[in-house]
Design a protein around this nucleic acid. Structure first.
Lengths: 160, 160
DNA sequence: GGCGGCGTTCAGTTGATACTGAACGCCGTT
DNA sequence: AACGGCGTTCAGTATCAACTGAACGCCGCC
């Protein structure tokens, strides 16, 4: 791994850290983003210079979040990781889900809290309406994008 | 402040904490979300049971992020805070901006890193294309929503 | 010019969590 | 059945950031 790649990996470490993930998770992600093939845990640990335990924990974390994909090979006990092929849709969906929890908290407050002020009630209603609207917009956009994607890969299939 | 409100405030504290902000910032936000009028720093500190210093720092942080708005009153040296009236658009724009930084890092990698693998190159290009597409979708949706908002408030103005 | 109320700042403490490294369990092989 | 390679787990450590509370600077008022 050359210096520029290490730099990129490190930037990804910080980027995902600011997203609430451990820094090593970000480094794993960055490294796999630049990797042609799947990589084993020991491979990742060696390349990043971190302990095997950290790589194991964080790779599984990223897999659970839909960022990485774990593969196995015949007659090989090792686990291999690579970035989720449909990375974009997964991370987008992930963000939406996290956002929705916030939205639900406001909804619960609006219905179950004894709110006297009309101004406050109106504020919460408006926020929820805006969320619902944008949620639809984003979901609709995502399905449109996936449609394009499938069409393109179908065409690419024909060219093979 | 009753128990249910404290519960909501606390939930907001955790929610914004998972977004990279201090917990107290989330609590301030939650409290102001349920408040009819502006609140002074001392007021917030007393109601939340935290130090004045924390409230000062975190309220300014939220103001800088476009979440809160700082007001002043004639012949009163105190600062008053309330939630940004157009909260939704601001937080949405904020999220997009943070996301774009991530996107730019990938763009820089794609152009300036010596990437041999076509597979990797294609992966990065696809991610960027998806980002560009969704960024447009979201921006377009936001302006549409703001249009609706203005029309509604204009109608409300007629009814007054 | 002293005084009190206000927001800000900063050193110190506390609390949380990422990370290490060693121990462990599992399993196929010899 | 012992061994080696693999992933996982966990106690211990180190690092980092939030939060406190006290000191500070500013400003209008008595």
């Amino acid at each position: 791994m050359n210096a520029q790649m290490m730099d990129f990996v490190e930037r990804m470490g910080l980027a995902l850290e600011s997203d609430g993930l451990p820094r090593i998770a970000g480094r794993i992600f960055g490294l796999l983003l630049l990797s042609e093939d799947c990589r084993s845990l020991d491979d990742l640990a060696a390349e990043l210079g971190v302990s095997k335990g950290s790589v194991s924990t964080n790779a599984r974390l990223l897999e659970q979040r839909g960022v990485l994909e774990r593969n196995s090979r015949p007659s090989d006990r090792r686990d291999y990781y690579r970035v989720q092929p449909d990375l974009f849709s997964h991370t987008m969906a992930q963000r939406l889900a996290r956002w929705q929890r916030f939205h639900e908290a406001i909804g619960a407050a609006r219905t179950s809290l004894p709110i006297r002020s009309r101004k406050v009630l109106h504020r919460l209603e408006e926020y929820q309406a805006a969320y619902a609207f944008m949620s639809d917009v984003i979901h609709e956009g995502l399905t449109r994008w996936q449609g394009r994607r499938e069409r393109r890969s179908a065409v690419a299939g024909l060219h093979r």
